[in-house]
Nucleic acid binder design. Structure first.
Length: 918
DNA sequence: GAGCACTGC
């Protein structure tokens, strides 16, 4: 894929205000690992495009086969095998290494490696590893710890003539880093060829494995945890390096508990825990005060400027009446602490400002500091600073860290409209995981002379995306943090002040290739007093999947395992997860795995979407449900270019047609993409419809993986997600929605108030009574008609308000057959008793007693059949009639033929009573 | 009352 054909047929408007946002969908470049796919999917075959909902097997078989070739077909790396000394290999590895020393290329590489700080402590590190089972090794980015330490260990073994005994596994938190580090190390070792290489990587759905003995494997943390299922002692591993532990992600914290216990069972296993310098002692203490070695950093010097310096530099004066257009709210968190504590803090700040040395800070600066509100993000000040950098400071790209979409959008507007900056001289790059720019190459390109690149980014630029030519970093001082409230069962996403770790990491982004500057928009006083770290993920997230992992790896009681973690989650959070799993029939009262739980624990999905795909196999709609599951768990293929939000929404609405469902909309869009791909227009289709082709391809691979896993469990007869028997109902929208309901229940929202044309969005009530809204990105967000007021959803999150992110309208039968407990009652409505079936006591349907009895009887039989099939999985041929199948077919029939009357819900009164008849 | 970031045989 070259630069030119990324622009096929589309003129690039690199003149004028060169904001990179262009065209309907923006452009997307492919990463190196994806490149081969582009040629694979561009086969051309004449085929009529139908407005069908779901994939026609014949039509896309070809594409499927092509994708299949790309997939890793097998895992021939046998973790189960214990390492055995192989003298022949020992000798050959040693010879190979000695041979390399004669190569000028290798020696040149070696001499640059020797300049890394890590290399200077090579012997010390080797000795420490050899004489201790666990060590902590800390060092900043650029010191070479990740690339060098695994090689030190392996080469030391090889030199000592025991190379075959050394298999180093180094875990990485991100897929990208596993690949890029492996490639870098292979390069350093002069092993470009992939066969029998001493270096490899393994990430989900993609691996290049190294040779079996004498190797270094870089893998994601999730991969090693999965491998533990079949090899509890990691028998084939001699050294495990857990990298980036300071990031404290969930899987990494989990792995540390496992490894801490494992060392007792594997006295020969060596563990190296690698972290940033800050707080490294905490890890050493955790591993019983194990030795700790620190490697000093190696990046270019970055001058740190705090708020007082920025004000002095820019002569910024806080506007007593900030302009309305970008006046941002004080973040909700601060509202809670608006009392004495905060007043005290502000007073401290004023006292501190008045005591600043007057030879460095002018009276105006000091006065500004006493007026400025440091509890909210200040884009006025960011603009003042940008003007200063753009107009007065030397060339070099600028990276601005802001918390989220809104600030990226606001700052982008301010920059384009500013009278004191010539926007023609700027290349503004908004960077957010949901914007198309994350896949564009432009972000890494150096702009032409005289053009200043300004990247406005979220935390994505803190670790995931590294832009080398950044010289100036502006750290706005806030970051979005996900949290979880176990009492309300609600996930939240709010802005918080950054931690010192964030600040340091952001600063480091300015010194990658040359000396730089970092401007923090908080005072040095705040810096000195700020929290070292944001709370680790394990304290801020739902724990269902963690619990299932504990059980499948047979790590004992959930609570006692969790109590061994570096930071222990609250008892409420653990309890909430266990109760949820018990309600799902995944765990029994003793917290042991039930048959369903056993299947769910083996699927790389959250328990609800896992249940969904199990049901899809039993109800003959495997392919579409696997796609929806992949999308809900991984990411949506849709992105939104900055400034084209409404256009992207309309586009998805058009793709949905008359289906009141985000999930069905996805199927329709995907189907169209597959047809376009076959005609060689996949890329254009994605571009026109605000989709990411890379994500589509990834979803396709995941879908295939799910089918393979279901095949392994025994639920389907074929490895192909599209096999006919498992897709007999795959064009049945009603049934697909019912299976979604079976998986995602009890995530039901009730439509409370429909949208007013062109004004509001739909408001909903959740089961616990919480009021929320449909997220603007949902195809139902602006709906004025609903055929049923019940919506099934996967994700709800509280930001400024409670938002439901995806949903499908669900009719009564799926709720009755796949929902919670059903009961019959007489309800008094306006003085009249009415017969009513209720699901879990909150979803009522008016009906006669006889209907209730019939449904109840069918439901009982269905539950028995499903339970039996979960206990003894087998591929079901829905075309073959059996007594069981008659029941299932009857229910499928009822669901398929159900038509719900369209109710006009514009009459608000209707919502307050339960007058909706079915 | 519109979207921090990751991840899994």
């Amino acid at each position: 894929m070259t630069w030119q054909n990324r622009h096929e047929g589309r003129p690039s408007s690199s003149r004028g205000a060169s904001n990179v946002i262009e065209g309907p969908g923006g452009l997307e470049s492919t990463t190196s690992t994806e490149e081969k796919e582009d040629s694979a999917t561009s086969s051309v075959k004449e085929e009529e495009e139908e407005g069908l909902i779901l994939p026609n097997m014949e039509e896309i078989k070809e594409l499927s086969e092509e994708i299949e070739q790309i997939l890793p077909s097998d895992f021939d790396f046998e973790f189960e095998e214990e390492i055995e000394s192989q003298p022949y290999l020992d000798a050959s590895f040693k010879e190979e290494l000695e041979e390399k020393m004669k190569s000028s290329k290798y020696m040149k590489m070696l001499s640059s490696r020797k300049r890394l700080p890590a290399y200077k402590q090579r012997q010390e590190i080797i000795d420490l590893v050899n004489s201790n089972q666990i060590i902590v090794l800390s060092g900043e980015t650029g010191c070479g710890k990740t690339t060098q330490v695994p090689q030190f260990i392996l080469d030391d073994y090889i030199e000592k003539g025991k190379g075959s005994l050394c298999n180093v596994v180094c875990t990485q938190p991100r897929r990208i880093s596993a690949i890029s580090v492996a490639e870098r190390v292979a390069d350093e070792r002069g092993e470009k060829q992939l066969e029998q290489s001493s270096v490899g990587y393994s990430i989900r759905l993609e691996n290049r494995l190294p040779r079996k003995n004498g190797s270094i494997l870089f893998c994601t943390t999730g991969i090693i945890l999965r491998r533990l299922e079949s090899d509890q002692k990691l028998k084939s591993v001699s050294h495990i390096i857990i990298d980036e532990v300071h990031e404290r992600d969930l899987l990494c914290d989990f792995l540390m508990v496992v490894v801490k216990d494992l060392v007792a069972l594997r006295p020969d296993l060596r563990v190296i825990v690698m972290s940033a310098t800050l707080n490294a002692e905490k890890f050493s203490q955790y591993f019983n005060n194990c030795p700790h070695i620190n490697i000093p950093g190696f990046t270019f010097p970055v001058k740190q400027h705090f708020l007082e310096d920025v004000i002095q530099l820019t002569k910024y004066r806080p506007d007593p009446e900030p302009t309305q257009r970008h006046k941002s709210k004080r973040y909700p968190k601060w509202k809670k602490y608006m009392m004495e504590e905060e007043e005290q803090e502000e007073w401290n700040m004023k006292a501190w400002a008045r005591n600043l040395p007057t030879d460095q800070y002018s009276p105006n600066t000091i006065s500004a500091l006493t007026q400025i509100d440091t509890k909210k993000i200040n884009l006025d000040l960011v603009m003042e600073l940008l003007r200063h950098i753009v107009n007065k400071m030397e060339d070099g790209a600028v990276l601005v860290f802001v918390p989220g979409w809104k600030e990226i959008s606001d700052l982008n507007k301010l920059l384009l409209e500013d009278s004191r900056i010539n926007s023609r001289d700027l290349r503004i790059v908004p960077l957010h995981s949901l914007m198309p720019t994350v896949n564009q190459r432009d972000i890494f390109e150096r702009p032409p002379a005289g053009i200043r690149k300004i990247v406005i980014a979220t935390n994505i630029a803190e670790t995931s995306i590294t832009i080398d030519d950044i010289v100036y970093v502006i750290d706005c001082g806030f970051v979005k943090v996900k949290d979880f409230n176990p009492e309300k069962g609600l996930q939240t996403l709010e802005s918080f002040p950054v931690s010192r770790a964030n600040a340091q990491q952001r600063k480091g982004r300015a010194g990658r290739v040359q000396a730089g500057h970092c401007f923090h928009l908080f005072t040095s006083l705040q810096y000195a007093e700020m929290k070292e770290y944001i709370a680790p993920e394990i304290l801020r997230t739902r724990l269902e999947e963690l619990c299932l992992m504990i059980k499948i790896l047979k790590l004992g009681k959930i609570e006692s395992f969790v109590n061994k973690a570096l930071d222990v989650p609250s008892a409420e959070a653990v309890k909430a997860a266990i109760v949820n799993l018990q309600n799902l029939q995944a765990l029994d009262d003793n917290e042991e795995l039930l048959p369903l739980g056993y299947h769910l624990a083996r699927l790389p999905l959250d328990p609800h979407t896992g249940k969904m795909i199990l049901f899809s196999a039993m109800f003959g709609c495997l392919d579409p449900i696997c796609l929806i599951a992949a999308c809900l768990n991984f990411k949506s293929p849709f992105f939104t270019p900055l400034g084209k939000e409404a256009q992207a929404d309309r586009c998805r609405k058009a793709l949905a047609g008359d289906s009141p469902s985000d999930h069905i909309m996805l199927l329709k869009a995907f189907k169209k993409w597959e047809i376009a791909s076959r005609n060689g227009n996949g890329r254009k289709f994605c571009y026109d419809n605000f989709m990411s082709e890379n994500v589509c391809k990834m979803l396709m691979k995941m879908k295939k993986q799910f089918a393979e896993l279901l095949y392994n469990i025994g639920f389907v007869n074929s490895l192909d997600p599209r096999n006919k028997v498992a897709n007999i109902h795959s064009d049945n929208e009603n049934l697909i929605t019912a299976v979604i309901c079976a998986g995602l229940y009890p995530n039901i929202a009730k439509v409370h108030r429909v949208a007013k044309p062109n004004r509001s969005t739909v408001s909903v009530i959740l089961q616990n009574g919480t009021k929320g809204y449909l997220h603007k990105g949902s195809v139902n967000a602006n709906e004025t008609y609903f055929p049923s007021k019940w919506l099934i959803y996967h994700k709800v999150m509280k930001t400024m308000a409670v938002n439901v992110y995806d949903c499908s309208v669900v009719s009564p039968y799926p709720l009755l057959f796949f929902g919670g407990k059903i009961s019959f009652s007489l309800t008094n409505v306006k003085g009249r008793d009415r017969e009513c079936v209720e699901i879990d006591g909150w979803i009522p349907f008016w009906t006669e007693r006889a209907t209730y009895d019939l449904v109840k009887d069918l439901r009982k039989q269905l539950d028995k059949i499903l339970e039996d099939r979960i206990v003894s999985p087998r591929a079901v041929d829905l075309t073959v009639s059996s007594k069981e199948q008659v029941i299932i077919n009857a229910i499928v029939d009822l669901i398929s033929k159900e038509e719900v009357t369209h109710h006009d819900f514009r009459d608000d009164d209707q919502w307050d009573s339960n007058e909706v008849d079915y």
